[in-house]
């Protein structure tokens, strides 16, 4: 679109008659004429969205807005306990039960351990690697990097 049309396009589409220069260009330039015509058509079509009548809000509208605001207000984690004490008590009871079950499980596991040697020297002797030189040589020979 040419500058002369672009400058006055909005006024023209709003219904203001174009200047002599504007009209003359529109008559002589088919590209601008086509584009302006398409825009004019759509500009008229958009008018269908104009509110034909004044719509009066029904009584009590603000109260319903306030109610919706309350429904949509994001709640903090802590507020769940404050606002619903029953829910809070249930969560506390469930936590205590979980702790009790976990605690009794850990205690029963500890008693399952058989009493092993209490002397550190015995334990070290049992866990020490073999001292036999033949075993050592066999281990080194079988070593593959």
């Amino acid at each position: 679109m040419h500058q002369v049309i672009l400058d006055r396009l909005e006024e023209y589409l709003a219904g203001t008659p174009g200047s002599r220069e504007f009209t003359a260009h529109l008559e002589s330039c088919p590209a601008c004429r086509t584009e302006v015509s398409g825009m004019q058509e759509l500009s008229n079509a958009l008018g269908v969205l104009r509110a034909g009548e004044e719509v009066t809000p029904p009584a009590g509208f603000y109260a319903r807005v306030a109610e919706r605001v309350e429904q949509q207000r994001p709640r903090s984690f802590a507020s769940l306990f404050w606002l619903d004490p029953v829910f809070g008590r249930r969560v506390a009871f469930a936590s205590l039960m979980t702790l009790a079950v976990l605690g009794s499980y850990l205690i029963s596991r500890e008693t399952d351990y058989s009493a092993g040697p209490t002397n550190p020297a015995t334990v070290m002797a049992e866990q020490a690697p073999a001292q036999d030189p033949d075993v050592m040589l066999a281990t080194l020979a079988s070593y593959e990097p």
Partner: peptide, 24 residues
């Protein structure tokens, strides 16, 4: 509120839904 109701009615044209949209 009146302005908002009129805008919504112009676009949506569904009287039943106008208030719901306006509340939102």
């Amino acid at each position: 509120q009146s302005k908002v109701f009129s805008i919504i009615h112009g676009i949506v044209r569904q009287r039943n839904d106008v208030e719901d949209i306006a509340q939102q």
